[in-house]
Design a protein around this nucleic acid. Structure first.
Lengths: 202, 202
DNA sequence: TGCGTAAACGGGGTAAAGTCCGGTTAGGTC
DNA sequence: GACCTAACCGGACTTTACCCCGTTTACGCA
């Protein structure tokens, strides 16, 4: 179920997953996330409703899959990209850069991110990549007296929470102005938590 | 609509709101939050379904109202309680105390808190009291170079997020053990953000 | 105390999420 | 290449949140 394990998935199943994802993206652009119903998605993709639910579990699951798919690019940059975001820079700088990237990512995919949350059936609710990445960086920093696991969760939520909240409030979020404030706030928070940044003694 | 304004509400409407809240609490204990349907609530309270929706807007709205109601006690302690939590103590100590209280509150009302989130219709989504209270305390601290509004949002989400996430994951959360870890984590986070606590120079 | 109005009430109706199970097909094995 | 099994597919069915609008009721005012 996780990405590391090469679990077998039948060829037609994989094909249909891709078809559904593509169709969902099309419908998303065409009718918007609120009008994207499971029936419509099934009909447009030429599949049965049961198939849609088998693949994604719930309505929220589709949006989650869509978001994961978009997130893959960011994930690549983090794992093997250029230094401020990718490996090679001091952990604090990487934390700041990651927050910046994450905020922009969420702002760009705001409607999908929003749709991820609704629905009674909890869509997996895996621990997000943000938290894992933050935890790794915190471990590298080895902050004295800190519980890296808990702190990672706190920071991950501090990063996503306020932005998502704002996305819920206003129907739209326009230019880069509001995200800039969150980006500055994130830098400030990271520097406070990690004790004065800028001078990575190494 | 806010609590400060004494907006007029017809007597029968207020009476029914109380009746619905009480009935909902009863049903919550009897059948659990998942089986608490709007039809059932309407029937048990002897009212029409339309009335239920008029009062609370959505299913999530009921749980939100329930949670608000429970939160009132905590709110009182914050506004006029004894020092560590209430006014009189240094802001950092109050922040730590508030987090402790909030975590316990959420842990106690975990099922209601969880039910608050689901449903497609966003239930109001007001800025929670946590954030407001934290913002006030941060303003008192007057941290140099910090954006108190943004920071308050970050801390509020850092406080609630990890715990709510955990509540979603496991169906139940037993003793005080897991919350203790969050409480310690919160104290640590606050002290880091506010720059070494314990010694409020004043 | 009788009247007008604006709000609250009721409960049947709708749409959409999620379930079920009989039929079909992919892919490994001999 | 025939066969077997497990996984997949389809679409009708059920449940439930939410809407609508005709009817009733509380409350201010003359």
């Amino acid at each position: 179920m996780t990405w590391g394990t090469p679990q077998p998935e039948r060829a037609d199943a994989a094909r249909n997953r891709q078809l559904l994802l593509a169709t969902a993206r099309g419908l998303l652009a065409e009718v918007g996330p609120d009008c994207l119903t499971m029936d419509l998605l099934a009909e447009r993709s030429g599949l049965g409703k049961g198939t849609v639910f088998r693949r994604f579990g719930s309505r929220a699951g589709i949006f989650q899959a869509l978001l994961d798919d978009s997130e893959r690019a960011l994930q690549q940059e983090v794992l093997a990209g250029r230094p401020p975001l990718g490996p090679g820079a001091p952990p604090v700088d990487r934390l700041v850069a990651y927050g910046r990237a994450r905020i922009r990512f969420l702002a760009e995919n705001q409607d999908v991110a929003r749709a991820t949350l609704d629905g009674r059936k909890t869509a997996g609710r895996r621990r997000p990549l943000s938290e894992i990445h933050i935890r790794v960086l915190l471990r590298e920093l080895d902050l004295p007296g800190a519980d890296a696991d808990v702190l990672a969760g706190q920071l991950a939520h501090a990063l996503d929470g306020p932005l998502l909240f704002q996305l819920f409030a206003g129907p739209e979020l326009a230019g880069p102005t509001p995200t800039a404030r969150f980006e500055a706030g994130w830098r400030d928070l990271v520097e406070r938590v990690c004790g004065q940044a800028g001078t990575p003694a190494d």
